[in-house]
């Protein structure tokens, strides 16, 4: 009897969940979401914006895309405008995690669910948002350090000597996290290696060329490896190395992002490795985050896209070409 009751109970519960699931499925149809993102001026952003538009449309979500040129003050104003439109949710690529906390609080007070992507602000304030989906910048820095050690082993070089870093913009959450991940992991894996110097490359090839040229002039032959926090910045490092008469194939050159120029340099043997951060993966995760919100699915506070390490051996397999329009 007990067994029969249990079986019936299970069947009832199952049919209820199935019904609820069917009701929830498609709950995102017609929902309006305002996406406050970064301008197409950055290649990664252009691919991301294009993909999220298409994927949200496929799921029936009305996504309004509002962008800025990496201007936190402008984004704060855009948050006010978005709140006034009373959307079902706001999806935000936080240009500056710290500076936008007051804006996030406004969204919370307005009772609008806030989903964050790409840049994860200080998790101590995670009560302000429902979910963060995107990259784990500290992990990316850590993977870059692992790649550097792997490169030194592969090239038969001792794990001693100096390393220089070309970072993103000073003060940005992603710059701080990537630098932390890289320095801490390198200290663990190769304690005899020393970080000689670091300069911002501001996510730009030209600035990175100048920054690396200065460090090559100062440290020259002491440098065994270079970590550039983005492949387009590594391109600048390679230009500076060539001008300084240094052979990049005899150094551990590590970039990040699996960007087209990085893929080209890895295949040419000029760059040892990179770490994947795919705009397609990120857009997929962001759309899933919206769907989960509207269907009432369980939502962990942080969901990270995968960041596999990439070398010449797996570059074709892991670094898929970014889709075109």
């Amino acid at each position: 009897m007990t067994k029969l009751r249990t079986t019936l109970g299970a069947l009832l519960a199952g049919s209820f969940l199935a019904t609820a699931g069917m009701a929830a499925d498609g709950a995102q149809d017609g929902k309006s979401v305002i996406f406050l993102g970064a301008d197409d001026i950055c290649e990664y952003c252009a691919v991301y914006n294009d993909q999220i538009r298409k994927m949200a449309a496929d799921k029936g979500i009305n996504l309004e895309v509002v962008t800025n040129k990496f201007d936190a003050a402008q984004q704060a104003t855009q948050v006010d405008q978005a709140i006034a439109k009373k959307p079902d949710a706001i999806l935000m690529w936080t240009i500056d995690g710290t500076a936008l906390f007051p804006a996030m609080r406004k969204v919370q007070r307005a009772g609008i669910p806030l989903l964050l992507i790409d840049v994860q602000p200080d998790q101590a304030r995670e009560d302000l948002w429902v979910q963060y989906s995107g990259g784990n910048y500290e992990e990316r820095g850590s993977k870059a350090a692992q790649l550097m050690v792997q490169a030194l082993d592969a090239k038969g070089m001792e794990k001693t000597g100096g390393v220089i870093m070309i970072t993103g913009m000073v003060g940005q959450a992603q710059t701080i996290s990537m630098t932390k991940g890289f320095t801490e992991t390198l200290a663990k894996l190769a304690p005899e290696m020393e970080i000689l110097g670091a300069q911002p490359g501001n996510w730009d090839t030209g600035t990175s060329t100048q920054a690396a040229a200065g460090l090559f002039t100062k440290y020259g032959d002491q440098i065994k490896g270079v970590y550039a926090a983005e492949d387009i910045m590594m391109q600048g490092v390679l230009i500076a190395a060539e001008r300084a008469g240094l052979d990049p194939t005899q150094m551990a050159m590590i970039g990040d992002g699996c960007e087209p120029v990085g893929i080209k340099n890895i295949k040419a043997g000029l760059q040892y490795g990179t770490v994947l951060q795919s705009p397609v993966d990120e857009a997929t995760f962001a759309v899933q985050s919206m769907v989960d919100l509207f269907t009432g699915a369980e939502m962990p506070k942080s969901v990270y896209v995968p960041h596999p390490m990439v070398t010449a051996e797996n570059v074709d397999e892991v670094c898929q070409p970014w889709p075109t329009k």
């Binding site: 197409d40 001026i41 501001n202 730009d204 600035t207 387009i232 391109q235 230009i239």
Partner: peptide, 12 residues
């Protein structure tokens, strides 16, 4: 110099 062209060029 870089063999690349993009919208970041000339930002400053």
């Amino acid at each position: 110099q870089s063999g690349t062209g993009n919208l970041r060029v000339g930002a400053d």
